[in-house]
């Protein structure tokens, strides 16, 4: 079986588990929504909320992502499913890209909700050209986050005590995504001092990030997960 076929199967499997267990819908999305409400309580100023909405959306995405990543690997660690896949000779790259794709899809769902929340709660507004930039940057950022999240999720899965390590390892690595995606979103929403052109340049950074970690992850994921036992 080719890596691409494995990728599709693993992604479909992860999304199917998610659809049936509804952890994202029942737990992560409400968590993200309440985070957005709490940000409003903390900042307590409508003008300021409009200005910082892009940053808050992406910050809420990162925090929620930690839960999604842990969930993504908890289902693998439960019955030694990941080890079974590897022992069965399934290529590590296929598993890596499959899980990353499923994670990226879940993050996109999450971001859609968060932008809707910003629209309703913070009065964020965007026009035609802005929407295109917003969607592209969300796609690029989700791919990058999915790839990096899967990589470090694989490392921290399994034995006890590793779960608490995930935020320490993952948050510094995803800082460029937070900066890039926030600036691109600011351009799309027309807040801050970022022009549309600069917004697209930040999207280029997000794409570069996803490519670099995609390559790094496809090489590093195998050695990282093969020793989780």
């Amino acid at each position: 079986m080719t890596s691409f076929a494995v990728t599709k199967l693993v992604a479909a499997k992860d999304l199917r588990i998610e659809l049936r267990s509804r952890v994202l819908i029942n737990q992560v999305l409400p968590f993200a929504a309440i985070t957005m409400v709490l940000f409003a309580f903390a900042l307590d100023q409508d003008d300021l909320l409009v200005r910082v909405a892009p940053g808050l959306v992406w910050l809420a995405t990162l925090f929620s992502m930690l839960v999604v990543v842990q969930r993504s690997f908890a289902v693998e660690a439960g019955d030694g499913a990941l080890d079974a896949l590897r022992v069965a000779g399934v290529p590590a790259q296929g598993i890596y890209f499959g899980k990353a794709a499923a994670l990226a899809v879940q993050l996109l769902v999450l971001e859609t909700l968060l932008f809707a929340a910003a629209f309703v709660l913070y009065s964020s507004r965007f026009d035609g050209a802005g929407v295109f930039l917003l969607i592209t940057s969300a796609l690029a950022a989700s791919c990058g986050l999915g790839l990096v999240g899967t990589l470090y999720g694989g490392l921290t899965t399994g034995t006890k005590g590793r779960e608490s390590l995930l935020p320490l390892l993952l948050l510094p690595v995803v800082a460029p995504v937070l900066i890039g995606a926030t600036r691109a979103t600011e351009a799309a929403l027309g807040v801050g001092r970022i022009s549309m052109q600069e917004g697209w340049a930040w999207v280029a950074l997000l794409v570069t990030y996803a490519l670099l970690f995609g390559i790094g992850g496809s090489i590093g994921f195998g050695p990282l997960v093969d020793d989780t036992a």
Partner: peptide, 18 residues
């Protein structure tokens, strides 16, 4: 070793974006 090499990937990206 893999984590150390991933840090080599991360640090220039952080530097550049900041």
């Amino acid at each position: 070793a893999v984590v150390a090499l991933l840090a080599v990937l991360e640090i220039p990206l952080v530097h550049f974006s900041v």
